Amino acid sequence: MSSDRLLSIGMFIFTTDGLSYQELERRMSWNWAAAPRFGARDALQFTGPGEDKITLNGVLVPEVAGKYSDIARLREMADSGQVQDVTLGEGDVLGQFVIVAVDHREQNIIMGGRARRYDFAVDLLRYQP
């Protein structure tokens, strides 16, 4: 693996000298069913794994690193509805995920309506066939 790789979503690669993210947040949950009991706390039964969600937050500054088209590429991947392998830069596979949201905010607008800075977030949800 290349040392500048941070993470890949399918064929889209976040790198230190291209589009990069500053924060990776992962939230995993597990499901428990509750059965009420008279005079006592509910009885709990484990029913299996719940959601596994990853959120990547970052900043795109095309004049420094990354391209204007990077956010559009992520949206196109989400539009395709395809399941993507998510892999950390050192090769650890996190699993198969789908892109469920891509947010961005444009700042420092220059002539022509281009932004110098894009704050972005990408939400991924673990796929279970």
Rank of each mutant, 00 (worst) to 15 (best):
F14Q: 05
F14K: 00
T16V: 03
T16D: 03
G18D: 06
Y21I: 05
E23Y: 03
E23C: 03
L24C: 09
L24A: 08
E25P: 05
A34W: 11
A35E: 15
R37V: 08
F38R: 09
G39P: 01
R41L: 12
D42V: 14
A43S: 09
L44C: 12
Q45K: 15
F46M: 14
F46C: 09
T47D: 05
G48D: 04
P49L: 14
D52N: 13
T55Q: 14
L56V: 08
N57M: 12
L60S: 02
E63R: 02
V64M: 06
V64R: 01
V64A: 04
K67T: 04
K67A: 09
K67I: 03
S69A: 11
A72H: 09
A72T: 05
L74A: 12
E76I: 05
M77S: 07
D79I: 10
S80Y: 03
S80K: 01
Q82A: 15
V83M: 13
Q84M: 12
T87R: 05
T87A: 08
G91W: 15
G91F: 15
D92G: 11
D92L: 07
G95C: 13
V98G: 05
V100Q: 06
V102Y: 09
D103K: 01
R105S: 01
Q107R: 00
I109G: 00
I109S: 01
G112T: 07
G113A: 07
